[in-house]
Write a protein that binds this DNA or RNA. Structure first.
Lengths: 189, 189
DNA sequence: CGGTGAATTGAGCGAGATCAATGTATGTGG
DNA sequence: CCACATACATTGATCTCGCTCAATTCACCG
């Protein structure tokens, strides 16, 4: 049984979909994407739990891949995951994420991108970082997969938001210029 | 505190989104739809739990509406919901549903409909009913909302499946003629 | 019968996908 | 230091799936 934290380089697999002897983990730094059948289905940032499927499934449900050098604290045993009451809370958080995803999937493409940007921004804020200036944790391909769009569409929409003066953009570095408008668009249609 | 089962007529609200003093319940007969912000986000058939949000939220997350005369067993207290370990199992089942939804949302419209038909068919099978002949629990409008499509599209696709000889269809009564093909299409693209 | 709500069918349009080319940043080895 | 390779991002042109709007049709009920 490996305890304590462990490092993963960008692109490294933390665990594979279908793998037995499954375990959960907490992301402590960096960023991790969750992939299910070639589809990006989740994004875990510092503080987020991954692999909670082990609470009720015998094998991992998704593949977890580090998006940049990340530190992850592996939780192999039941006791390391805390009491059951705590487990319910963790599952609940994951459920909220899924609900959010389901809801924005119905919105038009531009709203999805806006909603995601806001979401990432909030996450940064909650970690005490700048909520207006940060690096996008996903590249265009992964972001497109996550939002259920074509990568070209994502690219076009981001430059669109830039042209409309809502954001500043240099590759993956982003600055939010008009959070109000962004937020408004994210709830549109 | 109301105990035991209770009946709801078609269209009756079991609980409202946002309602306090929330509770969970088990559907014992009939069918219930779960609506979140005008959007159908779930369908509960006999044996399914609803309102599990009460495990971690103080107010109901969605509105539950009976689709036909249904018997529902209300679970007001923590103890009626079983031990925590049981709660995790219930949440897990709900999570699976959500994962399924997220996954098919990316597929083309026809695959969504096929996947849903298969899903309902399996549910019937697991209840010991005919897996080939049954009544669709949702009308076209609700089904469209659930699958993220326009109701006209759903209608066209169903008649399409009929023309292709995969199903027999009279209003909401359906007969599955070619489960293999249906299943194959549900995983397409 | 007519009346009401659900389902089907048709015509046209548009958001977003696809295909294809070009651009930009980080390399790596000569 | 420059040519070149690789990966990621942008931009353009075109096509298509599914949406919208509108007109029937169908089933059931008073």
């Amino acid at each position: 049984m490996i305890h304590g934290h462990q490092h993963f380089d960008s692109g490294q697999v933390i665990y594979h979909q279908g793998a037995g002897r499954s375990f959960a983990a907490v992301v402590q730094s960096g960023a991790v994407k969750l992939v299910q059948d070639e589809q990006v289905v989740g994004l875990a940032l510092p503080g987020d739990y991954i692999g909670l499927g082990c609470l009720y499934e015998s094998v991992q449900i998704e593949t977890a891949i580090a998006l940049e050098r990340s530190r992850v604290c592996l939780l192999h045993s039941e006791s390391e995951l805390g009491q059951h009451a705590e487990s319910v809370r963790l599952l609940a958080k994951e459920m909220q994420q899924k609900r959010w995803l389901t809801r924005i999937q119905q919105k038009p493409a531009r709203a999805r991108v806006c909603a995601w940007l806001i979401q990432i921004s909030e996450h940064h804020k909650s970690r005490g970082l700048s909520q207006d200036r940060f690096r996008l944790p996903l590249n265009r391909t992964d972001l497109a997969s996550y939002l259920g769009l074509a990568l070209e569409t994502v690219s076009r929409l981001l430059t669109g938001l830039h042209n409309d003066g809502l954001i500043e953009l240099h590759g993956r570095e982003i600055t939010i210029l008009d959070r109000t408008a962004l937020s408004a668009e994210s709830t549109a249609a």
